[in-house]
Design a protein around this nucleic acid. Sequence first.
DNA 1: GGTATTTTGTAGTGATCGATACAGAAAAAA
DNA 2: TTTTTTCTGTATCGATCACTACAAAATACC
Lengths: 198, 198
Amino acid sequence: MIDTEKTKKPRGRPRAFDLEAALTKAEALFHARGYDGVSVANLSEELGINPPSFYAAFDSKAGLFARVLERYAASALPLDRILQPGRDPAEALADLLETAARIYAATPSARGCLVLETVHPSADEVPTTAAEPYRTASHALIRDFVAATRPMRAEPAADLVDVLLSGLSARAREGWDADRLVASARASAKALPAVLAD
Amino acid sequence: MIDTEKTKKPRGRPRAFDLEAALTKAEALFHARGYDGVSVANLSEELGINPPSFYAAFDSKAGLFARVLERYAASALPLDRILQPGRDPAEALADLLETAARIYAATPSARGCLVLETVHPSADEVPTTAAEPYRTASHALIRDFVAATRPMRAEPAADLVDVLLSGLSARAREGWDADRLVASARASAKALPAVLAD
DNA sequence: GGTATTTTGTAGTGATCGATACAGAAAAAA
DNA sequence: TTTTTTCTGTATCGATCACTACAAAATACC
């Protein structure tokens, strides 16, 4: 039996908790209450991990948040699937907005986008700087998708979509239900053809 | 000389600081760093008011924030001036968006809307509930303005404007300059005619 | 002047923050 | 079995949080 990957056991005492399960719970907590709204004591209790084990596994609260963000960004909004090259820009971006609206309102305890909601003002600048790369990556993805067909309109179009996604996320946080949010997403998508026109 | 109002002196030791000036400084601090980002110790130092005087004047940090919000809502975005009855809805709302964009990006240390930015996940729920009345009031004002001419489209139009204002505020927080934000506001306003059409 | 009332500055309160010291327990390696 | 390594739980750390007890100071009223 060949060791595929993580099967080889490390040397010391084995970890007593499931790391992936811990990350999932941590993501739910951060999404529900934000970085500052979740204390290490909260995490320790809800994940069932005592502080020393917590710090051994994640280095710090910021370290855990970084790993949570990484997971979230890879699983939340399937940007690459929606923004398929060759697809009509206006239609694809409208689809993106509507899909985002659905996701943002889907889970009552995790409304909005974890990345977009991690923004100033915050008591701590750690979460904001941790989330920044994902915001710029999302912007770049949208811009490059538009640039393939409308290079001169790529930046303003990406800016507009940034505004709309941020707005949808904020109102999802406010408690809007999926229908209301999706309706607003569709209404806002009507601005897309104009910004994409030469 | 007739006492107009506040001229009649109270009985005890007079207050040693200017209350209005204190509120102005507190507003700047809350706008720059958010409710959770400003501690009572910060306020005490920057306003030059020791904690006992602070609590005698404002009751609590939340009490000060409530008074700051009241001032801000009355002075920030002149909704009533922009949403004049009789004005063309699409044009008035476009004006509102552009004006908001200008204001949100005007002061680098106070980007975005103080009310709208007080919805992002926070350690404390006090600021969010304190700002809620102002958010609903703004929504109602926009809805009623539209209802005067397009009653059936008032709610979805107000929802769309809510999304756009939240989005503009969020991106202003991100550091966008006025030109970029105004351009996005204008682009987003292109969605207004459709949502206002019967 | 004397008294009542309010604000003032000094110096704290207990609670909670993120993060750790320490020693025992559980595994692999020797 | 002994050694080495890593994780475990207990019991904190100093810093900071929002907030106050207390007595002196400063005013208006009598």
